[in-house]
Design a protein around this nucleic acid. Sequence first.
DNA 1: CTGAAAGCGCTAACAC
DNA 2: GTGTTAGCGCTTTCAG
Lengths: 340, 340
Amino acid sequence: MGIGTVSRVFNDHPSVSDETRQRVLRVANRLNYQPHPYARGLARKRTNSILTFVPFFTTFFFVEILHGVQSKLSEHDCDLLLYGVNHPDQVSASLKRNAIRGRVDGVLFFSMKMPDEFAAQYIEMKTPVVLVDTYHPSFDSFTVENVQGAYTAAKHLISLGHQKIGILNANLESVPARERLHGFQKAVKEAGLSIDPIWLKHSASPRLDGFTRETGYELMKEFIAMGSRRPTAVFVASDIQAIGALAALQDANLHCPDDVAIVGFDDIMLASSLGLTTMRQPMFEMGSLAVERLMTRMQDLVQPAVHMTFTPKLVVRSTCGFENSPNNPVSRSKSVGATS
Amino acid sequence: MGIGTVSRVFNDHPSVSDETRQRVLRVANRLNYQPHPYARGLARKRTNSILTFVPFFTTFFFVEILHGVQSKLSEHDCDLLLYGVNHPDQVSASLKRNAIRGRVDGVLFFSMKMPDEFAAQYIEMKTPVVLVDTYHPSFDSFTVENVQGAYTAAKHLISLGHQKIGILNANLESVPARERLHGFQKAVKEAGLSIDPIWLKHSASPRLDGFTRETGYELMKEFIAMGSRRPTAVFVASDIQAIGALAALQDANLHCPDDVAIVGFDDIMLASSLGLTTMRQPMFEMGSLAVERLMTRMQDLVQPAVHMTFTPKLVVRSTCGFENSPNNPVSRSKSVGATS
DNA sequence: CTGAAAGCGCTAACAC
DNA sequence: GTGTTAGCGCTTTCAG
């Protein structure tokens, strides 16, 4: 029995007699044989694995995404090579180390700016790339409408009757932070509300671009210290910061919906536990969709890039006060999680 | 110039003249050449990558672990193949699909029971395996002393003067759940406290072995419904459940430290945000250590397996009441997180 | 120090 | 249907 035949069996090649096939399979099983993926990859120039670059500096975000990726990937026979980037600055270094020619059939790239240099390289290598939460003209991408989301969030606050509205933002170096600021300002302007400049707060922290509980806590303390000039509602640029903000309020003996209303952004898992009203980003779905897109992209690389945009959805819970009655956050959560 | 020489350059082989080396490097750079990992792997029978099996059904746990793994791994030139298992029952299936001969140099296996069948297979393939949060006599392992942890937690409650102490547990099918129950009972018994059987609550939910916010919420509601027979303190088997429990208390207009004291288990990130007193499991560290161990294990496979055990550490925050003053959870968190 | 050649384990094209 | 053979892109002897 030739090696070629064995190979055919393991590749479901039609021209193998049923008898031979069974025999091969039986022996293979007894010997615990499995084709060597590397040899296979070398020979057929396809590796059945994809590389995923995820930002390890956005804990909650990447968890959901990874979940989505993994979930969809398990439907295809494909392995996942994970590269966690700990800091935005490391992107290039990571890319350099991992943009490994021939190692993977495709790459998923999340939440970080894809340097042109590498974009060019991937194109040249003909490796399909799908972007999530970031944009590059050359590749398929799934992004979130930050401006629109922030606009909706602010609008919600306004519709509840708030007149003195602030924003608690992350570091303005970050693109999403800037976009969210714009959306916020647009809504406020449209409503004809005057806005005290001191209500525009953002973090200066370089750490995680300011998307941390700590910045939320500290900036909210600053709001609190304003006394009567304090806004009655604040749009917080991320849930994780909102959690910090909530803690600050509590420490100051202020009550959330009543003294200061809060709307967050992201809808991380805890948001529902805490009853946080927020803008939902479909992270799990984006991860899952990205995989799907990558798979089809692997079939044809020629079609022009398609860019898909998601609009965050307002999830009303109990941190915005006024006409909202407090909810049971636990039962609420059921309608939200798509990850289970 | 021969292909062999190029190879030598890329492998830092000493016997290449400096001049040739420079020339190769220069050209390689211009051509954007990188050795093909698969071809390389095939030739040298080493792949420079490890497989990680993580339970995707323990969100917070695996995040920390992955973080630790990734962090340590980046110090070594090694790629990470990730396999997320969505349910304990899938372990065998996953293993079958991914216990891929020759694909990886080692495997990290987390929080799930390693079936003997696969253990044998790995041993035969001489693939080093390191276990975390689970045990098998044949492999190195890092585990957590659940019994001791629960014991400490209960002891803490007792030391605060509580006499009526309950346990809010996960599904007893789960090993950690059972161990934590034992530790709890041991402490209570030692203290000579009588324990009303109705204070021993556990989830029957198969989902995530009952380690969910929902079970915490529901079971705490049952405690609350006990009226005067209600315990004054309860040990909750996991932080995620504790979060649900906290919500239940809040919904019932009960105050946490005062009406019911709570101590959790895990010390997930949010624990500090919520001021939850809990038992810290060094998840990040275990991930990191596991990688280190695997690396040395790859050097010599003959040494007998070493089993390392961690004792969870009590982290006192504000959910246990009595002599504890409320803390600022945010600033508190700084002393706890090891993940940044 | 460098080139040539064997082989890593498989796939695919080609004969039979 | 099945055996044979030429690579896949690299590492690693072995000569020189």
